[in-house]
Every structure is written in structure tokens, then in C-alpha cells.
């Protein structure tokens, strides 16, 4: 098991958002995390990468408790995170954004090598390498945010609503890129509001509702509209 979350509780101040969530991700999988707005999906992802402090439960990475490891340690462990909202550094160039993705790399050669391979994967970025990231289109910014997280060659990439606010055609492009990534060996945990996409690209899924797991299983089961309805309304 790559990532194992057991009975996780977390929140903000007095507000408990996650009320005991358990979730597993095996190496090589694409796991979708679905659920209505405010269900706690982002909070769950933020807890994994240490941006939100857990109050109870366990987060195991390859069987080891991640405990209170600082973010840079997680990156070095091979966990990458693309936060919600296409958050590139708008005033930095595309190249500088990617360099920041590899901030923790000690060797300039490794940085250049990884930069080269990210640009191979995202050729749209190659043509705009010197543009300010704030001037890119929405789809390009999302590609950049993903590309930036690949600079550390993560084993597990965690994405928070990568398709948010993108046109359907661009969404497909983004997901095709993610699929390629997965075929190259990267495990993916994706929060996705768009059920259709989740069903098409993921192998397993979880539905989160009001801080609890409402459903978990193979995506085929999810495509049963009654199950879906139950999960969302429960």
C-alpha cells in the first residue's frame, strides 16, 4: 500500500471537517475522490501534505506514519501536490515556475534534466517558456501547475480539481496528460467534481460527504445512478 489513511480527523480551529476518514491508494492506481462542495475533499488532501493539521487518526506512507513531517520532507519522500485553483506564480515566467517546482533539487543537472522532461511532456509550455505565467490561458496554467509538481518526480501525485473552470476540450487534454503520467508509473489521487471524467479515468473512487466516506469501490459501481444518488443525499 502506497498511502493509507485511517480514521483521519481534521479541521480548522473548532470546526471539525473530517470526521474519521479512511482511504487507501495502491501503487499505480488512479483514485478519484468525489463529493459535493464543502464535503471536505480539499481538507483531506491538505491534511495529507501537512497544510491542515490532523487532530486524530493516521496517515501512512508505505507503512510509515507521516506524522508531522514538514512539507519539504514529503516532497523528498515522493508526494507531489497540485492545489485547487490553477495556482501558478503569475509574475514568474514559465521557466521560473518550473524551477520553483524543483526548488529542493540540489543539483543543477537534475533540475535541467527534469525541466527538459516536463517540457517534453507539455509541449505547450515549451513555446511559452519565457512568458509570465499569469498571461497563460487557463488550460496552460493548469498544465504548468501539474508540470511544476512533476519537477520532483513524485511517486504519488495528488491533484485538487484539476479540471475546475476549464472548457470541456481542455479538461480532456488535462486528463489525457494525467493518464499518460499514470501509464508512466505515477500514482494519482484526484479530487474531481466532474463524475463523468472521474469514471472515465479512475480505477477506484471514494465519495466524501459531510466529512465522511459515503461510498468506496470500483468506478463501475459508481456509475450506477442510484448508488450515486444515495451517496450524495445520505
Amino acid at each position: 500500500m502506497l498511502l493509507e489513511i485511517k480514521n483521519l480527523k481534521a479541521g480548522y480551529g473548532d470546526l471539525e471537517v473530517l470526521k474519521g476518514v479512511s482511504l487507501e491508494v495502491k501503487g499505480g492506481e488512479v483514485v478519484a475522490l468525489l463529493g459535493p462542495n464543502g464535503a471536505g475533499k480539499s481538507t483531506l488532501l491538505k491534511s495529507i501534505v501537512g497544510l491542515t493539521k490532523k487532530t486524530d487518526g493516521e496517515i501512512l506512507w508505505k507503512g510509515r506514519d507521516l506524522g508531522r513531517l514538514p512539507t519539504h520532507a514529503l516532497l523528498e519522500e515522493g508526494i507531489g501536490f497540485v492545489p485547487q485553483g490553477r495556482l501558478v506564480f503569475p509574475s514568474l515566467t514559465v521557466r521560473e515556475n518550473l524551477e520553483m517546482g524543483g526548488y529542493l533539487l540540489d543539483h543543477k543537472e537534475t533540475l535541467e534534466k527534469n525541466l527538459e522532461s516536463v517540457l517534453m511532456r507539455f509541449s505547450v509550455l515549451k513555446n511559452k517558456i519565457k512568458s509570465r505565467a499569469g498571461l497563460l490561458s487557463g488550460g496552460e496554467q493548469q498544465m504548468l501547475a501539474i508540470g511544476r509538481s512533476l519537477m520532483m518526480s513524485p511517486e504519488l501525485l495528488i491533484l485538487d480539481e484539476p479540471s475546475l473552470g476549464l472548457a470541456p476540450k481542455i479538461m480532456t487534454e488535462v486528463f489525457e496528460k494525467l493518464k499518460e503520467l499514470n501509464q508512466g508509473g505515477t500514482t494519482l489521487l484526484i479530487v474531481e467534481q466532474n463524475v463523468r471524467f472521474a469514471l472515465r479515468y479512475a480505477s477506484r473512487g471514494y465519495i466524501l460527504g459531510n466529512g465522511e466516506v459515503r461510498f468506496s469501490g470500483r468506478v463501475e459501481e459508481l456509475s450506477d445512478p442510484r448508488k450515486m444518488h444515495e451517496a450524495f443525499l445520505m
Binding site: V49, L51, T71, H72, L75, E76, F81, P83, L87, F89, P90, S91, L92, M100, G101, Y103, L104, R148, M152
Partner: peptide, 10 residues
Amino acid sequence: DNETVAEVLG
């Protein structure tokens, strides 16, 4: 530009 994202990148 964005402190949170900077932190996420280590």
C-alpha cells in the same frame, strides 16, 4: 506571488 503554493513546493 503565493505563499501557500511556495510552501507546498518546499
